[in-house]
Amino acid sequence: MGLLLFVYPFVVKDAFWQNVAVLALVSASAAAAWNLLGGITGQVSFGHSIFYGTGAYTTGYLLVRYGLSPWVGMAAGCLVAVALGIVIGFPVFRLRSHYFSIATIAMQQVIFIIVVNNKALGAATGIELPLREASLANLQFSTRDLLPYHLIALALLGVSSLAIWLFMQGKAGAYVKAIRDDEDVARAMGVPVRRYKLYALALSAAITSLAGSYYGMYSLFIDPNVVLSLNLSIAIVLVGVLGGAGSLWGPLVGAWVLQVIQEETRVRLSGAGNALDLVIYGLLVMLIAVVEPAGLIGIGRRLARRLPVRRRAVQR
């Protein structure tokens, strides 16, 4: 799978499909981060655009205002996102299941309103990033061939997935799963519930912020109605859930499917396509909730399990 994603931009030179791949990789990172908190730890956040926006805004602001390299901006964005995550998470983690989800929506709304009324952050119009010389240090490349953008996005996804995988290997992994399965039992067993929820949130916030920073550099425009919107939060959840909440590969599968649907409907139906993709997403999510909560990955596994059984039956 990893190799396929690496070879992809060397083979595929079509602008449309290159763009789909870059966006899919970025949203896969964000969704993998959401998945750590929502799918694996069981804390369904509908406010993850807060962290995505934090990354994008920190990077953009430092670049425009102080001329700092976007790499510095990314690191700074991570720190701000982790700090913000802890400040938000500390009180909000007192709430459970639905209550938690609703509180994350409210948080997102408050932060959105604060940012769009803040002149230093470009208010409602956002921040436009300056075009610089194409180089790795500037994190800007020619848009004729998106190869470098693709490789960096892939590297980010790799680093993010590795960080999540490492997190899951230690006792933190066992603890957060215990919290998802039954918080009261976990607490009775001596799991420091709130602390491990915060760890999961901190890592999740940092990775989401990275994705946001990179998206900002890729699009060279930071629009609060995109990077801080409820719709983005929705999209992040959709990608995570569609691929398969709780699985490591799920977000990547979900991101590809959604990105293809989104770009295809947009191209084919121009303005109205924007709504058709919503209709399809909505149908998919309802279908997954009702039929297979493990998402597309779960459906794939089910099919894979069924196939050899059938073959054997035929042989007999």
């Binding site: 069981g42 929705i234 999510v285 909560p293």
Partner: peptide, 18 residues
């Protein structure tokens, strides 16, 4: 629980799209 939370969420996205 995840299914219970996301099912009406899917409905929301669907209805808005329609």
């Amino acid at each position: 629980v995840l299914s219970q939370i996301i099912v009406t969420f899917g409905l929301l996205v669907f209805m808005r799209g329609i």
